[in-house]
Nucleic acid binder design. Sequence first.
DNA 1: CGGTCTCTTGACGGAGTTCAAAGCTAGTGG
DNA 2: CCACTAGCTTTGAACTCCGTCAAGAGACCG
Lengths: 194, 194
Amino acid sequence: MSASLIQHFRKLTTVNDSDVNAILSYFKSIQVRKKESLLENADVCRSNYFVVKGCLRMFFVNEKGVEQTTQFAIENWWLADYMSFQTQSSSEFCIQAVEKSDLMMIDFHDQERLMSEFPTMERYFRIISQKANAASQRRIKFMYDYSKEDQYRHFNNSFPEFTQRIPQYLLASYLNFTPEYLSEIRKKTFLKLV
Amino acid sequence: MSASLIQHFRKLTTVNDSDVNAILSYFKSIQVRKKESLLENADVCRSNYFVVKGCLRMFFVNEKGVEQTTQFAIENWWLADYMSFQTQSSSEFCIQAVEKSDLMMIDFHDQERLMSEFPTMERYFRIISQKANAASQRRIKFMYDYSKEDQYRHFNNSFPEFTQRIPQYLLASYLNFTPEYLSEIRKKTFLKLV
DNA sequence: CGGTCTCTTGACGGAGTTCAAAGCTAGTGG
DNA sequence: CCACTAGCTTTGAACTCCGTCAAGAGACCG
């Protein structure tokens, strides 16, 4: 399970064979079941999670009690509430497994120590972070640019296999509209195909 | 002008006095006038900009020809289209000065060299990047959670002096609604106060 | 002072929500 | 391995937030 993490490090930076074990000792490998929680509302986000296999989601609960999914993480993605993680203050988000998942995790303090001890890890997390930023800028652009219907179409075209993999109501929640409206769009799309 | 950049480095990491000049030599200091462009549509985003004084904005032009502002940067913030910057590929955004501004800038390749030469700069940009990520996650949450009216109220309460500083139509654009609707909200807010 | 941006007003329309109810599907226990 | 139930998806009608369009009132700059 750690193999896929090391592989990811090596895609973005260089890691000496002699350092691999020392680096891996900072991480813990865990398995979670479907719907298992990794971060509950108002807790501190103590760990940063790397998805080896499976899928996580981050969400918050709005004043009406509805869960709003703001982020998914699939294979080779990191996920945490970075505001809470960095300041080790209480989070407004929850993190939950969408499917049975294999994860690698690292605590905030361990990650800090890891980065001081191994400059290449500082570099790795800098690159990860910049990539995440680029993705956020792009995502925000889509939120400005596309109607909800277009956002669905775009997402569907970009990640067709992922759309199949998760329940529709989670996708609706991620795209910030109601399951009812998603249903309407799907019907429209289907009618066009016939 | 470089003083404020160094000060910012030192807020987040440690910089030896003996390294200051070598580090600063990677940066260029420039002044731009109001409405001056730093990145034009379809160009590569070659530089990362640090605002010493003034205000920048990033926007794109939608298919109707309307400018959609997705980000502002004021004193002590960095701004770039990170997708374009990192891959040195053509950008979908434009960057422009909202006010006459003093900036520090660094090219992509220089930033890469700077980070290899000075691990503390690798660390600095890692921290900057993580902070930006935290801010994006929070911003995306607000976009999900609040109605447009509430987004205006929230922004207004969070940055009252900034709301005064920029034209209303730019704020409307940033909050992703029309100047007409902003006007309506302001009227409502005003009537409540009376 | 004249002209070009910027902000306001109001009428109208449409994308997307809400609510309620009925059909489906998949996971669980027997 | 089947049956039952809880949770997911679909439908449709009514409603609302917010965009569009058009036109007028200010405000700022040369």
